[in-house]
């Protein structure tokens, strides 16, 4: 029981990182109807920026600066590569983000080098006693920070002018435009937000084990998360991220014991299995909007 609870907390911790990444994907999707395959590169860039800045400014300032820096990078990407493509098929734009991802990652890899880089976080692998449970501090930090960020984000969408503008543009772009919403600003804002979230998520991915050139693959696990939650649902992204994280953590702990025939490291691909299972039952995810079509 104790081991199970500890596994769950680890899953929720990792899951909240996936949730942050998934939120970035969904925010961009809602605004532009495009899945940005550039998020993995932005996440990696965020982690690298933190690891370099932390040596100069200290960790917490570094996270904030890195978040703003990556938001800036995301804004630039949106302005240069995505904005000229408005009105083109979404598939084309998605492939463009794939190209951007490749380019950004090569540049970022040059800053990582051959070895593992530490992000200079204060948690490392340190543990803390939570009643009878012994869990790593970083999982609690992930959960707490994600909870705060998600709360702020939802408040932003609910109570601010810009949040309202983003909701309106997501609902119907042309009508929003006719009501005086600057849709271009909405695009920029959504990419900026997604960049910031990716940077924070990248920092958390780097806690403990550090970052290396292959770390970007972790960001792809947010894709099953958004599919599970439904592509256009912010709440679904958070729920999907947590589900993916918990399932992965459960498999990490128990699959070797109960289902060794699935092979080592099966936990790494469980998000994709979860995604396939959910899609078989609900093709638009758990909370996604069902597209109605009649023939």
């Amino acid at each position: 029981m104790k081991a199970l609870l500890e596994t769950l907390i680890r899953g929720l911790g990792n899951g909240s990182v996936y949730a942050l990444l998934a939120l970035g994907f969904v925010i961009i999707y809602k605004a532009t109807r495009v899945i940005s395959f550039a998020q993995p590169a932005l996440m990696l860039a965020g982690a690298v920026a933190v690891s370099h800045l932390a040596e100069v400014t200290g960790f917490y300032t570094a996270v904030l600066l890195a978040g703003l820096l990556i938001a800036g990078v995301a804004l630039a990407v949106e302005r240069i590569a995505i904005r000229p493509m408005v009105g083109r098929p979404v598939f084309v734009v998605a492939i463009i983000t794939l190209g951007v991802d490749i380019v950004v990652r090569v540049v970022v890899n040059a800053f990582i080098g051959r070895d593992v880089r530490q992000v200079g976080d204060p948690w490392g692998f340190d543990q803390v006693a939570l009643g009878p449970l012994v869990v790593q501090q970083r999982w609690l930090a992930m959960l707490a920070v994600t909870a705060v960020l998600v709360g702020l984000l939802f408040a932003f969408f609910r109570y601010t002018r810009y949040g309202l503008a983003m909701r309106a543009a997501a609902f119907d772009q042309e009508t929003a435009l006719a009501q005086g919403v600057s849709v271009g600003m909405v695009f920029a804002l959504s990419w900026g937000l997604a960049g910031f979230l990716a940077a924070v998520a990248g920092m958390f991915v780097g806690t403990g084990q550090g970052i290396e050139q292959g770390t970007w693959v972790i960001a792809l696990k947010a894709l099953p998360a958004i599919i599970v939650g439904g592509l256009d649902s912010l709440g679904g992204a958070v729920a999907g991220g947590l589900v993916v994280g918990v399932v992965e953590s459960l498999f990490q702990s128990y699959q070797g014991e109960y289902a060794p025939w699935l092979g080592q490291n099966f936990a790494v691909v469980t998000p994709y299995v979860v995604m396939l299972v959910v899609l078989l039952v609900r093709p638009y995810g758990l909370f996604g909007t069902r597209e109605v079509e009649r023939v």
């Binding site: 598939f91 894709l223 099953p224 691909v269």
Partner: peptide
């Protein structure tokens, strides 16, 4: 349809690799 399909086929690559 569309991007849902792209992501599912992407998952296929990872499962296959495993």
């Amino acid at each position: 349809r569309g991007l849902y399909l792209a992501i599912v086929t992407l998952g296929l690559v990872f499962l296959g690799e495993h």
